[in-house]
Nucleic acid binder design. Structure first.
Length: 164
DNA sequence: GCCAACGTTGGC
DNA sequence: GCCAACGTTGGC
């Protein structure tokens, strides 16, 4: 059982989009960073908790709580010539990039980046470190519980995430 | 739009 | 394997 924060530009996929999707689930594709890929490929498990973060927008912050809903599988967009995520060096026999499915669990309070920065328990959070650009970053249990409490999602999340 | 920080590429 | 140049991220 692990916890993660994933960044999305809300213009591309917002937390509301996730809630509107079938089964509140979307494929998380387009990650083109090796460290983030390795987290998905090697460590993410079904039932892990996910903080869904809106980046590159007017008010960045945690927009909702989600869960990992699949193991890693090849990201189809790497083979798609028409996709901005196409990768000429990837082949179906030797894929480079992976996706996981992400399922929305609860939308509560929006917790802005500036609010996160005021929370003492988050001083060491990867997201808040200077120059941190990882689109997927690990979250400690302490950080998870502090942010879920700020979102107001304890009830909705309790018992939903599985123990792996 | 600016710019700091970081990742990737490619020549040597 | 070094490292300069370049591209990207993302807050402001």
């Amino acid at each position: 059982m692990a916890y993660w924060l994933i960044k999305s530009e809300p213009d591309e996929i917002s937390f509301d989009d996730l809630l509107k999707a079938p089964d509140c689930t979307v494929a998380w594709f387009g990650v083109r960073n090796y460290q983030a890929r390795n987290f998905m490929r090697d460590q993410m498990c079904v039932g892990d908790g996910v903080l869904f973060y809106h980046s590159s927008c007017a008010v960045p912050g945690v927009a909702g709580i989600a869960a990992v809903a699949s193991g890693a599988y090849p990201d189809a967009s790497q083979f798609d010539l028409a996709s901005p995520y196409h990768d000429a060096k990837a082949t179906p026999a030797a894929p480079r990039w992976v996706s996981v499915d992400v399922k929305a669990l609860h939308k509560g309070n929006f917790v802005s980046l500036s609010a996160l920065r005021t929370m003492a328990s988050l001083d060491d959070m990867v997201l808040l470190q200077k120059g941190s650009r990882l689109s997927i970053s690990p979250v400690t249990a302490l950080e998870w519980h502090a942010i879920v409490a700020a979102v107001g999602g304890e009830g909705a999340v309790d018992g939903v995430l599985t123990t792996v």
